[in-house]
C-alpha cells in the first residue's frame, strides 16, 4: 500500500504533497473513516477535527521517529499506542481548557483519535523508518490530507443540510431562505451518501483526466489532476 523506500530521496515538501494528494489517507488509502463521517455535520467541526488529528499525527510521528532505534520490535505496537494515547490526552486537555466549544462539539470522537488507523499506520510504515524531520513532514502532509477530506465533506453536508457555511465562526454565510435544506444530509445516512458521492465525483474527474485533457483553470480539478499524474 505504502512504499516508504521510494520516498527516501524526496525532500520534505514532496513528502507533504504526497500525504495531501498522492496517498491521501481518506480518498486513496481509505483509512480513518470514522471521524470523516461522524463529525462532518459542519465545516467548523471538520476544521477542528482536522487540526486536532494533524497535531497528534505530527507529534507522535516525531517522537516515534526519535525513539525508533530504542524500541524493541516485539513491543513496538504497544509503545506506539501509548505515545499516541499520550498526545491525544494532551490535545483533549488543551481543547477543553482553551476552546471548550470545540471540545463539546467533537465529544467522544476526541479520545477515538487514538484508534484512528492513519496514526498507527504512519507510525508503523513511515515514522519508525525515517528521521524526525521527514517524519514530521509526513505527519503534517497526512494530517492536512485528512483535514482536506474532512473539510470537503463537512462543507458539502453543512451547505446542503443546514443551508449555512462556516457557521460558528465570524465568517458564517447563510443560503437565502428560498433554497430548500435537506435534513437527511446532516443525519447519519447523509454522511455515507455524501462521502460516496464525493468519492464518485473524484473518480469520475480522474478517469476523465486520464483519457481527455481537461482545462486546468478550475482549482479543484487542478489539484486532483496532480494526483493522477503522480500515480
Amino acid at each position: 500500500m505504502t512504499h516508504p523506500d521510494s520516498n527516501r530521496s524526496h525532500p520534505c515538501t514532496k513528502i507533504i504533497k504526497n500525504g495531501i494528494f498522492t496517498e491521501n489517507p481518506i480518498f486513496v488509502q481509505v483509512l480513518g473513516m470514522c471521524p470523516v463521517l461522524a463529525i462532518t455535520t459542519s465545516t467548523l467541526n471538520g476544521i477542528s477535527m482536522g487540526a486536532a488529528t494533524t497535531a497528534v499525527l505530527t507529534f507522535s510521528n516525531i517522537f516515534i521517529s526519535i525513539l525508533r532505534k530504542a524500541v524493541p520490535t516485539a513491543v513496538r505496537i504497544p509503545i506506539f499506542v501509548v505515545i499516541i494515547a499520550g498526545f491525544v490526552t494532551i490535545v483533549e486537555f488543551l481543547l477543553r481548557a482553551y476552546v471548550p466549544g470545540v471540545y463539546s462539539a467533537l465529544g467522544i470522537y476526541i479520545p477515538l483519535i487514538v484508534v484512528n488507523c492513519i496514526i498507527l499506520g504512519r507510525a508503523e510504515n513511515f515514522a519508525s523508518k525515517h528521521n524526525p524531520l521527514r517524519a514530521a513532514a509526513d505527519g503534517v502532509g497526512m494530517g492536512l490530507g485528512f483535514a482536506m477530506a474532512l473539510i470537503i465533506v463537512g462543507a458539502f453536508r453543512e451547505i446542503l443540510g443546514s443551508g449555512t457555511f462556516l457557521s460558528g465562526t465570524p465568517f458564517m454565510l447563510t443560503l437565502p431562505p428560498g433554497i430548500p435544506r435537506t435534513i437527511l444530509i446532516v443525519l447519519p445516512p447523509g454522511g455515507f451518501l455524501t462521502l460516496g458521492f464525493v468519492m464518485a465525483i473524484r473518480k469520475h474527474i480522474l478517469d476523465k483526466k486520464k483519457t481527455v485533457k481537461v482545462a486546468e483553470n478550475n482549482e479543484f480539478t487542478h489539484c486532483l489532476s496532480k494526483c493522477s499524474s503522480c500515480k
Binding site: P72, V75, P78, I79, A85, G86
Partner: peptide
C-alpha cells in the same frame, strides 16, 4: 522495560 519506561514518561507528561 522500554514499554514500561515509555508508559511512565507519557503518564508523567499527561
Amino acid at each position: 522495560l522500554p514499554l514500561f519506561i515509555i508508559t511512565v514518561l507519557v503518564t508523567a507528561a499527561i
